[in-house]
Design a protein around this nucleic acid. Structure first.
Lengths: 223, 223
DNA sequence: GTTAGCATTATGTTATACATAATACTACTA
DNA sequence: TAGTAGTATTATGTATAACATAATGCTAAC
């Protein structure tokens, strides 16, 4: 039995239309009323279907102008669904882990894209590194600045957006009681050490160094 | 200026309600009409807001019964937004790259969770490895089986779901003209080699081996 | 030629009515 | 008394009509 509602069908219909017609970004689609007529449904249904497309990032709607096709930015969409308060604890912990995976695994893309300019920027960030007496917030900001720059250097916008997305989750998990308390804050490979490797080392070296740099996080995950 | 529409406000309102009241999964929320009354908006607006929550996986709606709170599975949501045909080429390529990052970076989680049983399963998969004369499809299936098992072993469900999500994109990119043609299909570290390392090696060794194993993919990305 | 203001148009919002399906209740029958 | 058929109820699904609002484009006045 087909349990799908009218709106479901209209939505699928519209998506199919976008794919088939190979409509380009910026193309406008007919008005709600025209669509309603052509599809033989009420404006209400058409509106709900369009609303879904909008949520999926497939279209943008402007008053008077109508709807235009946009390139779906999946991450801005996910972002709205990623409120840490609404996710269960296990998922939160797993997302925390994913960040570690990404930062260790992206070494090759770093080395592929890095320029002298990037190195300079990284060194600039390090120079402003707060000392241990400073407020916790400064440390967080600095961490984000440094690691965020790394994502940027990969040249992979999707990766960068993903990181931006995971940031609040990461912070939330870090501060919540989800993970074990940090027993010993040992100093491992520093930011400066990472930059040195980026300048003179290799992806292999960087992966191991980054793994070491993140050791404190790993310690909190593994018993 | 506040450009947000009424629906935006109602949506935010409802989410806030869910968070504040700490409503549990399975709890029912008031009917559309009740909500409309309490929020002072029309039923249409309330409906649109609820539709958004539904799309975000926060609620499920049944006829007569009303809406109940559900645990949001972000990945089933993203899945619907991730039709390769609807993404632009650059994003597709970048998602392709993300897979490589993940598989290299997850070494530590593999070693942390792997059991003798896992090793046995991996060896079983390798045993059925199709030889080079076989159909392309068989190779793909085998690749998915092997690498999918790795994600599974990490014990990170989120990671596993993410991989499942990226599969169609990966396949799409692999077969489309987005990447350079594979010049030389050289043999690098094999699946068997990877399993050997999982059995007797270390995360460091595995990362390098996996990087090597994926060399053909990297070659297609880097000029 | 530029701008003020009006007309137009498509989305945003409200209100109302009916359709539909799932639940709850009632009454009838074995 | 138990079980079931059938009916009432209720909340979502869909349709229609009307007005609000804002952006666009046209027109006329300066």
């Amino acid at each position: 039995m087909d349990t799908s509602s009218l709106v479901d069908k209209v939505e699928a219909n519209l998506v199919q239309l976008l794919v088939d017609r190979k409509l380009k970004i910026g193309d406008v689609i007919p008005t709600e009323i025209d669509l309603s007529k052509n599809l033989g449904v009420s404006r209400t249904v058409t509106r709900e279907a369009l609303l879904r497309l909008r949520m999926r990032g497939l279209i943008e709607t402007k008053k008077k102008k109508g709807s235009v096709i946009t390139s779906p930015d999946i991450f801005s969409i996910i972002g709205k669904s990623l409120d840490p308060h609404l996710l269960d604890q296990e998922t939160l912990k797993e997302i925390f882990e994913m960040r570690l995976v990404l930062e260790i695994g992206m070494a090759d893309f770093l080395f592929q894209n890095i320029t002298a300019e990037h190195i300079k920027e990284l060194k600039e960030i390090i120079k402003n590194e707060p000392d241990t007496s400073e407020n916790y917030v400064f440390h967080i900001d600095h961490e984000i600045a440094f690691h965020g720059k790394l994502y940027e250097i990969t040249g992979n916008q999707t990766l960068k957006k993903f990181q931006k997305l995971l940031l609040p989750v990461f912070d939330y998990v870090h501060n919540s009681g989800l993970l074990k308390k940090q027993a010993t804050i040992k100093k491992f490979v520093s930011h400066k050490g990472l930059v040195d490797i980026l300048e003179n080392g290799s992806p292999e070296l960087f992966r191991n160094a980054m793994r070491n740099h993140l050791e404190n996080h790993f310690l909190r995950i593994f018993s």
